[in-house]
Design a protein around this nucleic acid. Structure first.
Lengths: 200, 200
DNA sequence: TTATTGTTTGACATTATTGTTAAACAAAAG
DNA sequence: CTTTTGTTTAACAATAATGTCAAACAATAA
């Protein structure tokens, strides 16, 4: 038995994630992924059976990463709502610096999946954290610290303000002639702006 | 000479647009496009030389459609800023009902292009309407009707609040168990909400 | 040492899709 | 009527990527 155990398997998955989420190379072939992992191409088939299985696995982990981020804002502790939102913004920004292309990968693939009846989306609905968060939002509206509206609209606003600028990063960087550094700086500036827009 | 002139060419382009922007089938093959247009597959090559030429053409038109929408808000007429924003929201919402997948197609393709050094993005920067719009935003901030911030952040906020919910439509429809009709309804409700968030 | 087990590799088969070409076709012009 | 021009078609070639398989390999267990 080799010492490596399943190091190779992890290397392949990590290489795929790096290509997708850090470099935005969504059309990477198995050959390119194998090269990035420094292994033979057929090992992708050996460990994951098929390209699609690997891709769906990576997509699943991206999806989980997203719900985890929401969890960080809806978590159990008894902290003020404003702090929750701040925490969510911090987590989301930090995440977008590490994986600038994950969100756009998600929306692209979700779209494909709806057409291809994959069930990657299937188990999303049973999301208790979402319900919990929406309930907190409603309470906060009754308390008067945020504008009254259907709670789902508050969630949409928050996600929009945070994630859209990350998704359109390639486009806007070109339009504004910003460097990576400058764009990140601008995203960071958004924390205060977003907070002001969300809270009264 | 055939009576049809270049009807076929238009049929193919329209079929591609329909598949991409209305149905979200971004991975459509030339065969599928030809089928949707009701013509022989090789006519795609006859009229457009290659698949990529057709795809880039369609992308270019989508890009123009986007800048046109911005123009509708930065246009010459001397109308109040608030009305401009209202008009932009109306145009954007209407557009999203007709072509629900155009925005996500844009961000997906932009991303590919950055990696593939296509120059579809090349001529975007010379966008006078953008500058004009940002200038108006700045004036409005001095007038005190909108919160002070770097004007580009105002633009980002507006685009985010409008377009993100359209981009994540497939995902959110699933999560919320909404029908097309319900989701559209929710998007329409956003007009008042977005206006309130953008203007003091 | 030699089985055994899991891993890695290269050669090959398969598949899917695009692009090319020459011939058939249709309609108007000469 | 036949020539010309542009359009359409089917057959074929080229390409690129995935997936399979048997053999080679490495390391431990027997």
């Amino acid at each position: 038995m080799a010492v490596k155990d399943s190091v190779t398997e992890q290397q392949i998955k990590d290489a795929a994630k790096k290509l997708f989420f850090k470099e935005g190379r969504f059309k990477a072939t198995t050959q390119e992924i194998a090269d990035a992992a420094g292994v033979n191409r057929t090992l992708v088939n050996y460990y994951f059976r098929s390209r699609d299985v690997l891709f769906d696995l990576v997509l699943k982990e991206a999806k989980e990463s997203m719900t985890d981020r929401l969890k960080s804002s809806a978590g159990e502790e008894n902290i003020p709502f404003r702090v929750r939102i701040e925490r969510f913004i911090d987590v989301a920004l930090e995440h977008s610096f590490t994986y600038p292309y994950m969100d756009v990968y998600l929306v692209s693939r979700m779209n494909d999946d709806v057409n291809h009846q994959n069930d990657v989306l299937a188990n999303i609905k049973k999301n208790d954290d979402l319900k919990k968060f929406l309930k907190m939002v409603e309470e906060e509206m009754n308390r008067g610290t945020i504008e009254k509206m259907p709670p789902i609209q508050f969630l949409l606003n928050m996600m929009s303000l945070l994630i859209y600028p990350v998704i359109v990063q390639p486009l806007f960087k070109k339009i504004l002639q910003y460097s990576d550094r400058q764009y990140q700086q601008m995203l960071t500036e958004r924390k205060a702006i977003i907070l002001k827009m969300l809270m009264k």
